[in-house]
Amino acid sequence: MSHFYTNKTVVITGAASGMGRSYAVLLAQRGARVLLTDIDEDELCVTAELVAKYNGTLPLTMVHDVSKISQWQALAKLCKNTYDGCDILINNAGIEGAAVPVWASDMKTIKRTMDVNFYGVVQGTKTFLPLLAASPASALINVSSIFGFIGTPNASDYCASKFAVRGYTEALMVELAQVHPHIQVHLVHPGGVATDIARSERTAKFKEKFLTTPSDEMVNYVLQEVAANNPRIVYGNHARKTYWSSKLLSLSALQKMIGKGMKKLAHPDDYAKDHKGFKL
């Protein structure tokens, strides 16, 4: 892995915090040129300053809403004009979603979750495929979740987006193998990683209990597995347990296990039998 990332041009979305920041710093340490994007300009600048400590210059950054195709097109143009291409795209940006049960969710929030977590990945993948195809040794890294294996309470929109990323990327792996097999495609399923994705008051208990794996540890593992060309990467708190449970348990047994584990984290008002979501 020591030379795999040297002089590679890497585009990282969601680089203002969490795993995105870890990707930026750890890749800079490995000699990569990083182009960083995020919707949060202030924290993106903080990440850029951390990267500059390792290579002496501030990396290229762009304020970027991954749900906007026009901004993806501008990003690809910037990458092409500045670096004459892209070797690795990391579709890392994501949001937590509604954090309520189905009957308490609203369509605006569901749509935003899908626009960022799924369509952001789709638009980034399609926009950058020409650049990745032109690179002699390239990689696409799409971030799903362990919630791309199981449906969990209070995360139906988030699960839907991450299941969608999984299906989309697994199909793409087969397709690209027929035409551009030199493009490595990787599907990442993080477990409970200590990031800022869970920001709402409703998810505070979940964050405290489950989001415990340091983001640098998670990203170091991902970079190791990408260099080894492992297509599916499962790591982080409860990650492998969740993966194997999804494979080995019946759906009814899986539901019982998940329900028991999540029961103490639910907000009582959301599970009232007379909740307005059950009324016409």
Rank of each mutant, 00 (worst) to 15 (best):
M1I: 11
F4Q: 01
K8G: 09
V10D: 09
I12V: 14
A15T: 03
A16I: 10
S17D: 13
G20N: 10
Y23R: 01
A24M: 08
A24S: 14
L26Q: 15
A28S: 15
Q29G: 11
Q29H: 08
R30N: 12
R30M: 13
G31S: 08
R33T: 15
L35K: 01
T37P: 05
T37S: 15
D38P: 12
E41G: 09
E41S: 15
E41Y: 10
E43F: 13
L44D: 10
T47E: 06
A48F: 10
E49K: 15
L50K: 09
K53W: 09
Y54R: 07
L60C: 14
M62Y: 11
M62G: 04
V63H: 05
D65M: 05
V66I: 13
K68V: 15
K68L: 14
S70W: 10
S70Y: 11
Q73K: 14
L75I: 05
L78Q: 11
C79R: 00
C86W: 08
I88Y: 05
I90Y: 08
I90M: 04
N92L: 02
A93C: 05
A93L: 03
I95D: 01
G97H: 01
A99K: 10
A104I: 00
S105T: 10
K108Y: 04
T113E: 02
D115Q: 09
N117L: 03
Y119H: 11
T127F: 01
T127L: 00
F128T: 04
F128C: 06
P130R: 07
P130S: 10
P136T: 09
A137E: 12
G148H: 06
N154C: 14
N154K: 08
A155N: 08
A160E: 01
A160I: 04
V165F: 05
R166V: 04
L172R: 08
M173Y: 03
I183R: 00
L187V: 02
G192I: 09
V193T: 11
T195P: 04
S200V: 07
E201M: 13
T203G: 11
K205R: 14
F206Q: 11
K207E: 11
E208K: 15
K209V: 13
L211W: 14
T213N: 09
T213Q: 06
P214M: 11
S215K: 15
N220V: 02
Y221I: 05
V222M: 10
L223C: 09
L223P: 11
L223R: 07
A227H: 06
A228Y: 01
P231H: 06
V234P: 01
V234F: 02
H238M: 13
A239E: 00
R240L: 13
K241D: 13
W244Y: 15
S245I: 00
S245R: 06
K247V: 12
L248S: 08
A253K: 11
A253V: 01
I258S: 02
K260W: 06
M262C: 02
P268E: 06
D269V: 11
D270Y: 03
K273W: 13
K273Q: 11
H275P: 03
G277Q: 04
